[in-house]
């Protein structure tokens, strides 16, 4: 790891000011960034730690949305969202392992947009609003391909507002070595629509499966998905699963998620 300075601001304003420096980079829980730095895949001259900013911690319910501070750990969401949004709490409790969950944060996960991460699926299926120091971005507009979002240089995720659905479930087929999703499907049923978000499958990163959403919106049962499938073209392929395997798996997981949520 090349050396860098570390700043530990205690307010969002100070963090944004610190991030305006050349080659400064925000540090959430570091569970992806620190391994990346070790491999010298990034070499910022300054890291701005977001973990000491009290206004980015914790969660509250407001207007039917669960609003989670960007620096809130997966462990906190897993423990504290069980009443307000159980499917989200279960998702957070399945990320990585307990020690990773104590450090990793929701804002860091969304900003990183790993194509196999769990939180992007939850944000997209929940019709979340991603709040930054500068603006509010709909989850539908936020993700922009592998490891890419529409966040500008120095812009940080300060809060994530997830609409709490009537029913929801996340099914993750775990890649056993990395504990990321080989494929993960989040199904969220709202009063007037169903949203289905898929992670770990597409070469473009997290996406909504609109055909499944349309079918489930008129009939929220696994049977409604009979005959629907996603074309293998455009799916990721690696030693763990081919394009066809991932395309098949996402159909199976969607049915399981609907059955579990219904």
């Amino acid at each position: 790891m090349y050396n860098f300075e570390v700043e530990k601001p205690t307010s969002i304003a100070d963090a944004v000011a610190a991030l305006s420096a050349d080659e400064a980079q925000a540090l959430g829980g570091g569970q992806t960034l620190i391994p990346t730095l070790k491999q010298r895949l990034a070499s910022p001259s300054k890291l701005v730690s977001l973990s000491g900013i009290a206004e980015m911690q914790g969660m509250r319910l407001a207007a039917g949305s669960l609003c989670i501070g960007g620096a809130t750990s997966h462990a906190t969401v897993a423990a504290e969202a069980t009443g307000s949004y159980p499917a989200l709490a279960a998702l957070a409790g399945g990320i990585g392992d307990p020690a990773v969950r104590n450090r990793g944060t929701i804002g860091g996960s969304l900003a990183n947009n790993d194509p196999a991460a769990c939180y992007p699926a939850a944000a997209l299926a929940s019709g979340a609003v991603i709040v930054t120091n500068a603006r509010e971005i709909a989850a539908d507009d936020f993700f922009d391909g592998l490891f890419t979002t529409v966040l500008e240089e120095g812009e940080i995720v300060t809060e994530v507002r997830l609409q709490v659905p009537e029913a929801a479930n996340y099914q993750k087929f775990v890649q056993p070595a990395s504990r990321f999703a080989l494929v993960g499907v989040f199904v969220a049923k709202f009063a007037n629509a169903v949203r289905v978000a898929v992670t770990g499958a597409s070469e473009e990163g997290v996406f909504r499966w609109s055909e499944a959403e349309a079918a489930l919106s008129s009939n929220f049962s696994a049977d409604a998905l009979e005959g629907l499938s996603v074309a293998p073209e455009g799916m990721m392929a690696d030693i763990h699963g081919s394009k066809a395997y991932r395309a098949h798996l996402l159909g199976v997981l969607t049915k399981r998620a609907v059955a579990a949520a219904a």
Binding site: G30, P35, S49
Partner: peptide, 21 residues
């Protein structure tokens, strides 16, 4: 996980946390 220690009462992987933090 060979490097697990507790920081403020919770388990962390000390190889993936900066000392300054």
């Amino acid at each position: 996980g060979a490097c697990v220690v507790h920081v403020n009462g919770v388990a962390v992987k000390s190889c993936t946390m900066l000392a300054i933090e």
